[in-house]
């Protein structure tokens, strides 16, 4: 399912994805790093939940705050996954109406789509910055463990900025392919 990574037959695009384009190495490496970070958080979240279930079953008490840890972890993981999904062309699209068009025009269309995503990602990142700042200002925290909500933002915001950069890179990649 890793798009252009595709080693095995089953890893070929499992659904209609963007056409592959190449991006600068440092973007790909950063995307990979954030995906690994998110993956580690997801794995930790899974292990924590299993431990909490075991603790509840055998000791009669779950890990305190297990639910809110899942909520925090889920947010971090998903934000970290977004750039990786974009760089591997993993966002699903409908290719029925353009399947007969030339690669050139399809690359142009996808360049436009990625530019749109870039603008939206930049808008969301800008707003999230303010959202995080307010959470910090108002001292919002989780209920049981009282973890300040803004603590996840030093990971979330860079992930969003990386998403913006990735969209820029894939837009340029599609334009290059359209010209070639």
């Amino acid at each position: 399912m890793t798009g252009q990574e595709g080693g095995e037959a089953g890893d070929a695009a499992l659904t209609e994805h963007a056409l592959p384009v190449s991006v600068p190495g440092w973007i790909a490496a950063l995307c990979r790093f954030f995906a690994a970070l998110g993956g580690a958080v997801l794995l930790a979240m899974m292990l924590m939940t299993v431990a909490s279930v075991l603790r509840r079953s055998f000791l009669g008490a779950p890990i305190p705050g297990d639910f809110e840890l899942v909520e925090l972890g889920s947010a971090v993981a998903i934000f970290c996954f977004l750039p990786w999904c974009q760089v591997t062309g993993g966002n699903v699209l409908v290719d029925f109406f353009t399947s007969k068009s030339t690669p050139r025009s399809n690359h142009l269309l996808e360049a436009a789509g990625d530019l749109l995503y870039l603008l939206i990602a930049a808008l969301l990142a800008w707003r999230l910055f303010h959202g995080g700042a307010e959470m910090r200002e108002y001292g919002e925290q989780t209920m049981v463990l009282r973890i300040p909500l803004w603590w996840t933002f030093p990971i979330i915001l860079p992930a969003m900025l990386l998403l913006v950069a990735t969209c820029a890179a894939t837009t340029i990649g599609h334009l290059r392919k359209a010209r070639a």
Binding site: G60, A61, F67, E68, M143, V144, R146
Partner: peptide, 26 residues
């Protein structure tokens, strides 16, 4: 030893003080 859903952070402390295990959940 009862696992009880707490409605607020105050009652999380309250239930724990009363000997229950407070669970925070939506």
């Amino acid at each position: 030893g009862l696992k009880v859903r707490a409605p607020s952070r105050t009652m999380t402390d309250g239930l724990n003080a009363l000997g229950a295990t407070a669970v925070g959940m939506p």
